[in-house]
């Protein structure tokens, strides 16, 4: 019997018992607060209602609208192709599957933009990438897309271009019969994230 083996056995046992003391890892993976703070001061997460309207009209498959209002409000009116995840059920495991799918842009929508931004902060804290906030929310959507105001005289050319686009978008979302029928029957295919495993290892 070798005395060295006794020492090594004791060493290994001590180390293993040590893991019990040091590893109390949190259940949910979160990003560090400082990182979160740095990311949230960037305004890159905001998208305008015009951009959303354009993406819906073009049928951009990477767009995933997440409506954080209550189920009742969602029932009464919602943007086409949006999914309802009320803010209080945001971190349920069934909801979290919608976020962080590579190649999709999750855009949070609420009445204004505060609740959407709160949803952004909460999901960002959990480390999800590719989430955005629709600036101005549905109130702004109504003001700009559904009921656009004609720019006052002497406005720059771009204002008229935006107005022209919004007028067209208004037609798309409220007007012409064919488009409504078509738009409403679009089957929404919601992608959910898969646990990725890029590299495969062996022993």
């Amino acid at each position: 019997m070798d005395r060295n083996y006794i020492y090594l056995t004791i060493l290994m046992l001590v180390l293993a018992i040590g893991t019990l003391l040091v590893n109390n890892e949190p259940k949910l993976k979160q990003i560090e607060p400082q990182q979160l703070l740095l990311e949230m001061v960037q305004p890159t997460r905001y998208v305008t209602t015009d951009q959303i309207a354009k993406m819906i009209i073009h049928g951009d498959p990477s767009l995933e609208l997440v409506d954080v209002r209550s189920a009742d409000e969602f029932e009464q009116f919602a943007l086409p192709r949006s999914v309802n995840i009320p803010l209080d059920s945001l971190i349920n495991s069934s909801s979290l599957g919608y976020f962080g799918i590579p190649g999709t842009k999750v855009v949070f929508v609420s009445n204004d933009d505060i609740a959407a931004d709160q949803a952004w902060v909460l999901t960002k804290r959990l480390g999800f990438k590719g989430t955005y906030v629709m600036r101005g929310g549905l109130n702004c959507w109504m003001e700009t897309i559904i009921n656009p105001q004609e720019p006052s005289e002497g406005s720059p050319n771009t204002a008229y271009e935006t107005y022209a686009f919004r007028k067209g978008a208004q037609q798309y979302f409220t007007g012409a019969k064919a488009e409504v029928a078509e738009g409403s029957k679009v089957k929404v295919e919601v992608q959910r994230r898969k646990k990725t495993s890029a590299v495969a290892g062996g022993c």
Partner: peptide, 21 residues
């Protein structure tokens, strides 16, 4: 928890070392 699994496995492994000897 992972640390308990590791702990249990280490004990089993160490017991196996001495047993097999």
């Amino acid at each position: 928890p992972a640390s308990w699994v590791a702990m249990g496995f280490t004990v089993v492994a160490l017991a196996a070392f001495w047993g097999t000897m």
